[in-house]
Design a binder for these strands. Structure first.
Lengths: 191, 191
DNA sequence: GGGTACATGTAATCAGTTACATGATTTA
DNA sequence: TAAATCATGTAACTGATTACATGTACCC
């Protein structure tokens, strides 16, 4: 079975992990549980749940039951094999570096193509967005939750604070100074 | 033409932006230019270049020429329409929050399913990985580069430092203390 | 009993990734 | 001149996103 582990994506482990922690759950329940735990940093559109749960079922890592009541929704639980797969995953090292896809940062990289005012506007914009996000995280952190999920939230807070500081400090705002730290005199883009 | 902007992905803007900054370039040149600028935080497998450049050509945002020499490689340049599209993109706000896909963080979220030793091992592991990444960034920061690209690298450094501190501090190492900050007494996972 | 928000699911599309194949240049 | 590495490209696949369609519960 260890060989089959290679074929499981991170999304699969999210499903298995949530089910292992929360017990038998409907698809909608999964959606809710994901949203209130890893969902804030690991996006998981609900449509994907249907594809992945089906796949995990055929692999024997999930078992599927039909509700008796009127709506006859599917209820999933993790099988012993599934639980073992999560366990192994949690114990194996994670060499691949984290990826952060930040559109604001991407735009900044091309700042030399835009005017300094555009870069300044971007910085104000991003600072506001990160401040808002920080507010949301802080509110969320006030609620009761699993201690490990809380720990991930703590890193989220640190990331947001780092980003907020960056957009406020490292890039000047609307005050007309050059768009990068004063120590480097901003040469024109080569070619 | 503004209407067509909606159909451009971030990857498309990377290609357009690189070409706008660097002038006519072969596909391989694009690959190199991306790797040495936004590539470190915005992964871009080279196979995708062939699909995207073709698409951008049919949209009239790129023009394609064939080399005369023996190898007859394709050389792309950005058209005025393409340049205008990048310009508009750089000037429009970016509301979507940044996404950071961090497998280590995902595993941490499920820490309650694993033993405290597994969590401690994860933390050591991640601290080492981030320390290494930090070293690479710092070496890279010593080289000459566009000031805006340098600015993005600065945020990369701040992220990595935040992550390194987190895995070292917020999660204890191998010293046997409970797997989260001492202030919260780590209740058992519910159900 | 009509509207609104919540819940459940399918289908089509698109972007990203992996694997493969081969040609050109450099170096031992 | 053989091996190794760099360069160029295609094809197949998988995973993620979008759009749509409909059902159920609640609330006015």
């Amino acid at each position: 079975m260890s060989a089959a582990d290679a074929r499981l994506s991170p999304s699969d482990y999210v499903i298995l992990g949530i089910l292992a922690a929360a017990g038998p759950t409907t698809t909608y329940g999964l959606k809710r549980a994901i949203a209130s735990s890893v969902g804030y940093f690991w996006p998981f559109p609900h449509a994907q749940l249907y594809a992945e749960t089906a796949r995990l079922s055929t692999l024997g890592l999930l078992s599927e039951m039909q509700e008796d009541g009127g709506r006859r929704r599917r209820v999933y639980s993790v099988t012993p094999d599934g639980r073992a797969a999560v366990g192994r995953w949690l114990e194996t090292p994670t060499p691949e570096p984290a990826q952060f896809r930040d559109l604001g940062l991407l735009k900044l990289a091309f700042g030399s193509l835009a005017g300094p005012e555009a870069v300044a506007a971007l910085a104000r914009d991003q600072a506001a967005a990160h401040a808002e996000r920080l507010r949301v995280y802080e509110a969320y952190a006030g609620m009761p939750m699993d201690p490990h999920v809380r720990a991930t939230l703590e890193l989220g807070l640190r990331y947001e604070r780092a980003a907020l500081d960056f957009w406020r400090e490292a890039i000047p705002g609307a005050d007309g100074r050059p768009p990068v730290a004063r120590s480097s005199p901003a040469p024109r883009p080569r070619a």
